[in-house]
Design a protein around this nucleic acid. Structure first.
Lengths: 293, 293
DNA sequence: GGTCAATCATTAGCGTTGCTTATATTAAAT
DNA sequence: ATTTAATATAAGCAACGCTAATGATTGACC
C-alpha cells in the first residue's frame, strides 16, 4: 500500500509544479515534501518527479498521480455516502471542460459550490471521453455526440456563437458581399485542429463547403484579440464578442447569423451522488446562460 | 482521508470476526487493533463494529469495508501497471464462485497463483452480477447467462453433472423404471431455491416437466451425504460422485444421462491487467477439469 | 564568466504517534 | 456465582516524520 501522505505530496508537487508550492499547499515545509517524495521514490526504486521548472512527472509518477485521483474519488463517494460524518477531502476535483465554457458561463456554476476545489482540464483535443473512461477526470463538460457509457449525460443547452472580424478586415475581404469563396479566402482563426465551428457556420450561412485558410490559436480570448488586430475572422460565444461589437472593435460578418453548439454535462454514475451538488449548480447556471436545447 | 491502517484493522476484524483474529492477521497485538478501531470510530463519531461473536459491521462499517475493498483493487491495478515495483498488497482478493466449482476444479486454479490471497464468496443466490457491479467482488465465476456489462467474460467450459441416489432409494422409487412422474414423486436434494439443475435434467432425460418434491441443502458435500443416507436423489459434478458410485454407495439414476452447465469467468475490465495471472490460471485449470463448451 | 536568486537535498534534533506489555473490564456460558 | 474468553484501558517506550538550519545545484543576468 502506498503511503497516502507521500501520494498527497507527489500530487501537490505535480499540481503546483514545485516542491515549495506543494509545501505551501499542504502547509508543510519544503523539506517535508522533499523527504516524502524521496522516500517514495526510494521505496519504488524509480524517479517519480523530474526536477525541472515546472516539475514534471515521469511515467511512473503519472501513473501514481492517476492513482491518487482515483482514490480521491473513492473518498468523495465515501464521504457522500456517510453523509457528513467524514469531512470532504480537500484535494481539487478534476473536471474536463471546453475552453469556451470556461470563458463564458462555467465559473459562476463552480462558484455556486464553494465547498469544493477544482482542477480544471481544458479539453483542447476532445479527449474528455477518454479521460472519463480512464477515471482521469471526475466529470466533464463535453460537446454533444461523445456520450460515454456508464455516465449520466445532462443536456445543458447550447452555446451560441457569432462570427466576427475587425471592420477593416470586413472592408478588405467582404466588400463585395459574404460568399463561401470569400470566407474560404479570408484567413480564419481556429481554436485547434479539432475545431470545426467555422466550417459548420460557413455551410449553414452560405451552403458552400470551402476549404478554410486558418490560423490555429488555442486560447479563446486570444482569438478575439487576434481578430481585433485584423489577423483573421473568428467565432466566439455571443457573450464574449457582443460587447466588442457594440464598442466598434469588431463587426458581425453576417448579422444575426449565429450557430448553436449543444453541451453535455457527463458524470460517471459512480460519482453521481458525490457530485450531486455540482450537477445541480451546473444545470442551474447553464439554464441561465445557455440557449435551451 | 481515512487512515489506511485503521481501515485495514477494521477490514481484518470484520473478515476474521474478532479483534484477536485481526491482530493475528496483521501481526499486531489485540490492543493495537482495539485502539485503531476505537480512534476511527471516535473520529467518525459512529460505531463501526458490533462487538458480537463473530463481530459484525454496522451500516457505516459495511460502507467502510466496501471502501477498503475498492482501494485494495486500485492498489492491485497500480501494482500491475507499475510492474513489480510495488509489492502486491496482501489483502485477500474477494471473488464470487459457485459452490460446485469450489468443490471440484477451482482450488487448483487458485493454487496456481501462490502470490495472491483469496476471500471466496460462495454465490448461493446468483448475486454475482450485482456483486460485480457494486465492486464488492473483484471477479466471479458465474453460470452462463448473467453477463455483466463492463466485464470481460471468459467461457471456461461446462461442469458435467450426474443424477444419482442410493441403491435402496432406486429400488424403492425407480423399480418400475425412471419416468418424469416417478422423478417428481421421489424427494430430490436441491442446493437452494435458485437451483434448477434437477428440473433441467428431468426435462432433458424424460421430456416431462414434473413439479419436484425437494429438500433444500445449501452445501454441496452434504447433498451427496444425504443421498447416501437415502433421503433423496441429487445431482453433482461427476468428479464428486463417480468415486461414490464406483464404491457402491450410490448409483446413477439413468446411466450416462449427464447434464452440462457452462461456467463463465467474469472480470471487470478495470481489473483485467491486475488479474491477468489469475485469469490465465483459471482458464488452464478449467481446460483440464471442465467439458469444453 | 562570476555573481545572484531560486530551488531542491541533507542533516540534526525533537515531538507526536502508535505500538507493546500489562491489567482492568465486560459479557457469555456453565 | 464462577469461570472463561473476549475487548478496553493505561503506561511506557521506540520509531517515524516533521521543523529548522544549512548545503548543493541550477539557471539567469550583467
Amino acid at each position: 500500500m502506498i503511503d497516502p501522505a507521500a501520494l498527497a505530496a507527489l500530487a501537490a508537487v505535480l499540481r503546483t509544479g514545485s516542491f515549495e508550492g506543494a509545501a505551501a499547499d499542504l502547509r508543510l515545509t519544503q523539506s517535508a515534501i522533499s523527504q516524502r517524495v524521496k522516500t517514495l521514490e526510494d521505496r519504488l526504486g524509480t524517479a517519480l518527479v523530474r526536477r525541472t521548472r515546472p516539475a514534471t512527472a515521469t511515467v511512473a509518477g503519472a501513473r501514481l498521480l492517476q492513482h491518487a485521483e482515483e482514490i480521491s474519488l473513492l473518498d468523495r463517494r465515501l464521504a457522500a455516502d456517510l453523509g457528513g460524518l467524514l469531512p470532504t477531502p480537500d484535494t481539487p476535483l478534476r473536471i474536463a471542460v471546453t475552453a469556451d465554457s470556461l470563458a463564458t458561463w462555467l465559473l459562476p456554476a463552480l462558484a455556486a459550490v464553494p465547498d469544493l476545489l477544482f482542477d480544471l482540464v481544458i479539453d483542447d483535443q476532445d479527449h474528455s471521453a477518454e479521460l472519463l473512461r480512464q477515471g482521469a477526470v471526475a466529470a466533464a463538460v463535453t460537446l454533444a455526440g461523445g456520450a460515454v457509457p456508464g455516465c449520466d449525460a445532462h443536456a445543458l443547452g447550447s452555446l451560441r456563437y457569432r462570427a466576427y472580424c475587425a471592420p477593416a478586415f470586413a472592408a478588405r475581404w467582404f466588400a463585395d458581399g459574404v460568399t463561401a469563396d470569400r470566407l474560404g479566402a479570408a484567413p480564419a482563426l481556429t481554436f485547434n485542429q479539432k475545431d470545426t465551428l467555422q466550417r459548420q457556420w460557413v455551410t449553414q450561412a452560405t451552403g458552400g463547403k470551402p476549404r478554410l485558410k486558418t490560423h490555429y490559436i488555442p486560447e479563446t480570448n486570444a482569438i478575439t484579440q487576434a481578430a481585433i488586430a485584423g489577423i483573421g475572422w473568428g467565432m466566439n460565444p455571443t457573450s464574449m464578442v457582443d460587447p466588442l461589437i457594440a464598442a466598434g472593435h469588431l463587426t458581425e460578418i453576417i448579422a444575426g447569423q449565429t450557430l448553436d453548439t449543444p453541451l453535455i454535462w457527463q458524470v460517471p454514475r459512480q460519482n453521481r451522488d458525490a457530485l450531486a451538488d455540482l450537477t445541480r449548480a451546473m444545470r442551474r447556471a447553464a439554464r441561465g446562460a445557455l440557449v435551451p436545447a
